[in-house]
Computed example of a mutant assay.
Amino acid sequence: MEKFYQQFKLGVLGGGQLGRMLIQSAIDFNIDVHIIDPSPNAPCANIATSFTTGDLQDFDAVYNFGKNCDVVTIEIEKVNTEALKKLRDEGVQVFPEPEAIEMIQDKRIQKTFYKENNIPTSPFILIDNKDEIKNHTDFLPAVNKLGKDGYDGRGVQVIKSESDIEKGFDRPGLLEKFVDFEKELAVIVAKNSKGEIKAFPPVELVFHPEANLVEYLFSPADISPEISKKAEKLAMKVIDKVGMTGLLAVEMFLTSDGEVLVNEIAPRTHNSGHQTIEGNTVSQYEQHLRAILGMPLGDTDIRIPSAMVNLLGEEGYTGEVEIEGLDDALATKGVHFHLYGKKDTKPFRKMGHITVTDVDIKALKDKALKIKSIVKIKSK
């Protein structure tokens, strides 16, 4: 190797909770992490080696931040890719590659990419506005997704029948045929600069019915070994076809007939991999660092079954944070809190997560459901 890893100046676009946990992992390797984020109060603001306030979609802000770094990565895909391309042309290593980020930024391009590369996914139709849904009533029920700017449950609307068309988005997007799935799965997969690829075992996701955010997940997923291998192989195929270096989260549907379909992908550390910190040999954050810095990828095996409970701001509460049920949760064996440093809450805001571990799967699920019921993020 030309440099010891701690000699790399690592820049990260985005200073949210994903960046915060990446920094916590980077400390183990003596890697200094420099952050840029539009909010001066971002979760990384007080723990990064240096923190810059700047617009991630502004060419000059991204370029001027990145030109002083050896390696630049992201914790959110809504960034200026032209600036990243210029940085790469000038010798800065940029992972994931800007072209991969561009493709994933637009769900229309993303879905077309699956079709062109024989990656199984749900049937879809590209549309330019809400009125076009009226031309495809025979395709309903379907999910209307915005092509760009959908994030954390926003930009997704279920259109069950003609009466729901007015709920659609009047911007370019797509209609995805509604999938009658048995389970929602996710696989975190990584590829380093030497082409080595490793996938974490699939996890099972449970979404909030209103916010469309992950409420909790279980690792390992309650699926057969054959389905598990199929999901892992599919995730490895996707990252190989995308041609990116780094970490890729692949969200999937498992249908009742055993088919595994790719739903969406994210070119970064992801909510569906939080539990790897306590539950797996290597965490998704360490794996991302290993991938972008050219290290050998780590062992993804499950050390102990785990569950992740998302801590979302309760409906009807806005303001300074107060956590209800904290002591009861901490008194439960196998419970580990991860709070994101956000001082103020609002409905459905991601405020933290709790990992629960247990060698017994039934006990694990019981504890996770109990934790979900007693811990509430409210305001004073």
Rank of each mutant, 00 (worst) to 15 (best):
E176N: 08
K145W: 05
N192Y: 10
V189T: 13
P201L: 11
K148M: 12
Y151L: 11
A186S: 15
G150V: 06
L140Y: 09
I159W: 07
I197L: 05
K167D: 10
K194M: 11
L175H: 10
Q157A: 14
E162L: 00
K167C: 06
F139N: 05
F169R: 12
S163Q: 14
A142V: 05
P141R: 12
L185D: 02
V203H: 06
K148I: 13
E162A: 11
P141T: 12
F139T: 10
S163P: 01
K148V: 13
K191F: 06
E182R: 14
E176F: 04
A190R: 03
K145G: 08
K167M: 11
A199Q: 11
I165F: 12
K148Q: 14
F169I: 09
G150T: 02
L174G: 03
S193P: 03
E204A: 00
E166T: 11
L175G: 08
T137I: 15
K177N: 03
V156M: 13
G150S: 02
T137E: 14
S193H: 09
R154K: 15
E182S: 15
E184V: 09
E182M: 13
G168C: 12
I188F: 02
K198P: 00
K145T: 10
F200N: 04
I165P: 12
S161R: 05
K148R: 15
